[in-house]
């Protein structure tokens, strides 16, 4: 029990967000692979996939390497992956916005976007709070 308390007290909040970041990134990848090919988008973008995998991997690595830049890099890769994802869906998005065919955003696309956004938001939060320990007096443990 004491060891657990000691462990948690030696890590910042960002540490505990690393796993959710990786989970969200993998969920985004899986959703993209499942729903990314549509009548508007003939193929998946490899850049959207490898960057998301890299973001997830770095986030997991940050569990062992408690170094802020790793978390920031994970966040930036997630952001890059999201932009690549949007690029791959550009035709679809244009079709929705030109409002000619009555096409709307699919639940798959919305879910993928949400997962990407969660990855990005949690990744950034994890990086910023990598050393922040609000449960400790004074907050910043290190």
């Amino acid at each position: 029990m004491e060891r657990k308390a000691s462990f948690s007290q030696s890590r910042g909040l960002g540490f505990f967000l690393a796993l959710p970041v990786a989970v969200c990134a993998v969920a985004a990848i899986l959703l993209y692979r499942k729903t990314g090919v549509t009548e508007f988008s003939p193929a998946l973008y490899p850049s959207a996939l490898w960057s998301a995998w890299a973001a997830a991997a770095l986030s997991l690595i940050s569990l062992f390497v408690n170094w802020k830049p790793v978390k920031y890099l994970s966040y930036l890769l997630a952001l890059y992956s999201f932009i690549q994802y949007l690029s791959s869906q550009a035709t679809y998005i244009v079709n929705v916005f030109v409002s000619i065919d009555g096409t709307t955003f699919s639940s798959g696309m919305i879910a993928t976007s949400v997962m990407y956004l969660l990855t990005i938001a949690l990744g950034l939060t994890a990086a910023i709070t990598a050393h922040w320990q609000p449960w400790k007096k004074g907050g910043n443990g290190k």
Binding site: V37, T38, E39, F40, S41, V98
Partner: peptide, 10 residues
Amino acid sequence: ASSNGAIYMT
């Protein structure tokens, strides 16, 4: 082709 049916208008 930019906003419609890109998958079959190859």
